[in-house]
Design a protein around this nucleic acid. Structure first.
Lengths: 178, 178
DNA sequence: GTGGAATGTCAACGGCCGTTGGCCTACAAT
DNA sequence: ATTGTAGGCCAACGGCCGTTGACATTCCAC
């Protein structure tokens, strides 16, 4: 079969995202990704050069945090995070990989440092404690993703979006505004 | 060098725990563990049979949850969890590994289901909502470990034990007692 | 002191990995 | 119709892995 360069690249990237999200960095092999994309492993190298560069491309990610009213920021953040997780594999890629791969952990730090912290500063006008506040928020949101989507604790899997929002919003709200 | 069987087994197990905790299942190779233990890789197989069985032995773990007064359970749990994490590599092994290894994820589920849930039932006398409560507690505590010890978000690393207890206790307390 | 079990080493196996270089093959411009 | 080029394939490399079996060494019981 014959495709345009851009098409092939996109197909490979989609397969890579799925594999990295499902298996983590090491178990997601170039060969498996290539098989998913119905293409020779050599093509992956041609288009991305190296497994690390392919991963870097697959881990591109933007939290796309919305503007939030200060008194509803907690609920808004939890809801946005849950939906973002389910709609975009990027977060899964980063979490599955960041645990055993220092480069991915570094990217996670910059994403949360660069995207959550400014939001917190804007919401609280408290630049001094904002880094800790943002990290506390991140700890609860990532713990949610970990227990619900990765470790699959049955009660977390069974809970509805609304239940989770109801339970977690006050926590996040308090971390944001004391 | 010549050692007793039990000594050697213990040395291998200690090396395995360190490697699994630092690197996760795949990157912690039998060869590296054997090198740490200053022994031939074949000995690891002799004593443990298989990499999976070695892992199972290295991932033995008991949370050792203490008895807690209901109104101080939040603070007690956070403090206990922080100290347990730093004193015992078992939790690190499970978290680093559970993210990409289904067997470790299953063990994590049984540990939290079998140890945290009974504690929550005892504290609240509310068997119906206890599973969700326990999972919420777990989500915050695991999120704490993830952001502080694995991803190493700088503000979480810099925070003192007392600061973290002060911030997280109300969260855990609320998950436990509404 | 000699035999045998326990402890430890060594070399090799088959397998999967990332990566490379050469070779086809379809297509578009001439 | 010819040719250049871009898309794709194939076979192979060196490396590391878990695992195995044969071989060496130490120790203890008799």
């Amino acid at each position: 079969m014959r495709r345009s360069s851009a098409e092939t690249k996109a197909v490979i990237l989609a397969a890579a995202r799925e594999r990295f999200a499902a298996d983590g960095y090491d178990k997601a092999t170039i060969r498996a990704i290539a098989a998913d994309a119905r293409i020779d492993p050599a093509m992956v190298m041609r288009y991305f050069g190296t497994k690390e560069k392919l991963f870097a491309a697959a881990a591109e990610f933007d939290l796309e945090l919305p503007e939030l009213a200060p008194d509803q920021a907690g609920a808004g953040l939890v809801r946005h995070f849950l939906r973002k997780w389910e709609a975009d594999e990027g977060l899964q890629v980063l979490l599955r990989t960041g645990v055993t791969n220092e480069a991915a952990a570094e990217r996670m730090r910059t994403i949360f440092g660069g995207q959550v912290m400014p939001l917190v500063i804007g919401l609280t006008g408290d630049p001094e404690r904002a880094p800790l506040r943002a990290s506390l928020v991140a700890s609860q949101l990532l713990g949610l993703a970990l227990s619900r989507y990765i470790l699959k604790f049955p009660p977390m899997v069974a809970a509805t979006e609304e239940e989770l929002i109801a339970w977690l919003s006050p926590t996040v709200q308090r971390y944001l505004t004391e």
